[in-house]
Amino acid sequence: MDPSSSSIQEPFDLIRLSLSERVYIKLRGDREVTGVLHAYDGHMNLILSDVEETILIVDPDSATEAPVPVNVAKRKMDMLFVRGDGVILVSPPSRA
């Protein structure tokens, strides 16, 4: 198979093709991180480096149906382990 092909056979191929790339991760508890993906396993446990976590602080008493973030906090970590069960979505950099 052409190694540069963008075709993937199983979902984990998408993760494998993202090794050493900066990925976006959506986690349970309204957490989002971006970082460089170094390792993953079948649980989707992840090792990321050069990580930036974005914390959306929403007003739970907000009258609007979709609470808008009242504040966005960011913090950085050099190296991070993410436990797989918290992962909702992983998006690799655009391969376009």
Binding site: F12, L14, V90, S91, R95, A96
Partner: peptide, 22 residues
């Protein structure tokens, strides 16, 4: 992929991996 929360688009991804338990 387009992400919808309460009926409006909140994000777009060229590729996305979604963990099955969700």
């Amino acid at each position: 992929t387009e992400e919808y929360v309460n009926g409006s688009v909140t994000n777009q991804y060229g590729d996305a991996f979604i963990r099955g338990n969700n």
